[in-house]
Simulated assay, not measured.
Amino acid sequence: MDESNAALEQQLQREKDERREERFIWIFVAVMLFDVLAVEKMSYAVVLLFLLQLVFLSFVGKWLGIEAVAVPLERLFDRIMRWLPESSDSSPKK
């Protein structure tokens, strides 16, 4: 009886994990579709939009418990933020 309960719990956990991953994939596809439609109408706001989407996707990945997605997205966001110029350096000099 205990073995069958454990097997059912493990199967249920696998099913939950698969559904979470599927939800994330659908959210990711929706974001990419939005990008395709919106990027042609935007110019410089694309960079800001991309950064906001990275934050959003990493939050959704954490919320759904998909660390395999959340951690690389956070690393990418950190790398991009280090690559961008500092706000104090970009201020006009007199």
Rank of each mutant, 00 (worst) to 15 (best):
F56P: 09
P72H: 09
L33A: 15
F34C: 15
A45D: 00
E9R: 08
M81P: 03
L37A: 08
S91E: 15
R79V: 05
V69L: 14
D17K: 14
P85Y: 00
R20H: 10
Q10K: 05
Q11G: 04
L52V: 04
R23G: 02
R79M: 07
R14N: 14
M1D: 08
V47G: 05
Q53K: 15
A7G: 12
I27Q: 13
L51I: 08
L51P: 11
P85N: 01
E3K: 11
F77M: 00
E86N: 11
V39R: 05
E22F: 08
F56H: 07
E18T: 04
M32K: 14
L64R: 07
V46C: 00
W26P: 01
L73Q: 10
M81G: 01
V47H: 02
Q11R: 07
L52I: 02
L49I: 03
F24R: 04
R14Y: 07
A30S: 11
R82G: 04
Q10Y: 00
W63I: 03
S88I: 05
V71N: 04
A45K: 03
R79K: 11
F34G: 15
A7M: 13
F59L: 14
F28E: 08
M81H: 00
S88Q: 09
V36G: 15
F34V: 12
G65H: 14
F28K: 13
E15R: 11
L64E: 09
V55I: 14
E15D: 11
L84P: 10
V36N: 12
S88T: 11
A45W: 00
I25E: 08
Q10A: 05
I80H: 06
L73M: 13
E9K: 08
Q53Y: 03
I66E: 06
L54N: 07
V29P: 07
V29M: 11
P92A: 06
R75P: 07
Y44D: 07
L54K: 09
A45S: 03
D2R: 03
R75F: 04
S58Y: 06
E21I: 06
W26F: 03
K16A: 03
R75M: 08
Q13G: 07
L37Y: 01
L12M: 11
F34H: 15
E86W: 02
E15C: 10
P85Q: 01
S88H: 10
A6D: 04
L57I: 02
I80C: 12
P72C: 12
